[in-house]
Design a protein around this nucleic acid. Structure first.
Lengths: 190, 190
DNA sequence: AAATTAACGTATCGATTCGAAACAATTGCA
DNA sequence: TGCAATTGTTTCGAATCGATACGTTAATTT
């Protein structure tokens, strides 16, 4: 009997094989693309080596090398943190974002979902999000977006993080955060 | 905005990282486990090197090595095909099946789904199956189970494959087949 | 029947990745 | 001020993966 695990494994194999068949991206290791994509989706608290490391579940040494390779490709720049001299912020360049936008697998998934009905993609995303939330309850990090975070507040009409006690740009509330902690009710209301 | 692709990527990272944290399986490459699991789920037409190769989307040289490693671990045995001397059938041993049954990720997914409601796992599996079917329409192979195959027939009350013109054991109709071709209506009725 | 082509599996090579460990630099804490 | 914890880099060795070449067997063509 096929389980959820098997479906996810098969989907993953398929997506990887497409990446390899892509002429432009065949030389680029999958981990590098995963890291770059994460960096394009996370906020300023999370765009560090340790952020990528925890998100991908690898060791920091390995990740450091992959990021170095991305930097050499010109898809990434490193910027020192103003306050903490240990930290380095990683920002995808225009060229890097360009590469991400050409990932065939992303579009293929969206189009396949569209062919199955107008609300299919949203419904499936919602369910996968719920599953992910459930799985991450035992994890140290939950990697959600600000909007679903218990620290997420409003102050003077703008988003505000109760953990770091800092105001956030409006664009940040849909970004992935390393410090995310789920609010009480994870179930998104229908 | 998080896409289907991102959810699948994150889920995959999480599952992989669990595999690495498992003391017993940390030394075992993920590809080997994927191959072994496939072999435990596929039928007699598909348990060959080329079957695994196409399912995982790798090259046959690479797969041949991974299978060799599995054989050396004693998790797999090779059996020559009776009719075609080129082919080798790969059969997981009892020890191999034992390893598969201990995959923590499989259970974790099932339990997480269970916590989200009684029908959650089935509904999600069904949707992922539909998505997979849609994605595989452009592929050469669809890797479905006999029951959803256009060659699937009944003869003398037993399953029968219209492609190979052979009877099938009853246990095979839920197994993955390399030669699978979807029947006209892929949508599984509710 | 013979020759050619195609398919299956293996072996070898080189590039690359990954984890483990050691290391330097900075921060936070007692 | 000491001491531990955190961040990030580097180095090393093992192992994976793709590409290529090869041998064997089956299928096809002449």
């Amino acid at each position: 009997m096929l389980t959820l695990f098997d479906y996810l494994e098969r989907l993953n194999s398929l997506l990887r094989s497409w990446q390899r068949d892509d002429a432009q991206l065949s030389q680029v290791p999958a981990v590098q693309l995963s890291a770059l994509r994460y960096l394009s989706l996370c906020n300023a608290y999370s765009d560090t080596v340790m952020g990528v490391t925890e998100y991908l579940g690898l060791t920091k040494g390995t990740v450091s090398q992959s990021l170095k390779a991305l930097e050499e490709r010109g898809w990434l720049v490193k910027e020192a943190d103003a306050a903490d001299k240990r930290q380095v912020h990683l920002r995808p360049t225009a060229a890097g974002l360009q590469v991400l936008s050409q990932l065939a697998a992303v579009d293929a998934l969206q189009q396949a979902a569209l062919a199955l009905g107008p609300g299919f993609a949203d419904a499936l995303s919602s369910q996968l999000g719920q599953l992910l939330g459930q799985l991450q309850q035992q994890e140290k990090r939950s990697f959600g977006v600000c909007r679903s975070c218990r620290f997420h507040q409003q102050q003077h009409g703008a988003p505000f993080c109760g953990l770091t006690q800092q105001p956030l740009p409006l664009s940040a509330i849909e970004l992935i955060c390393r410090e995310h902690q789920p609010a009480k009710s994870e179930e998104s209301p229908e």
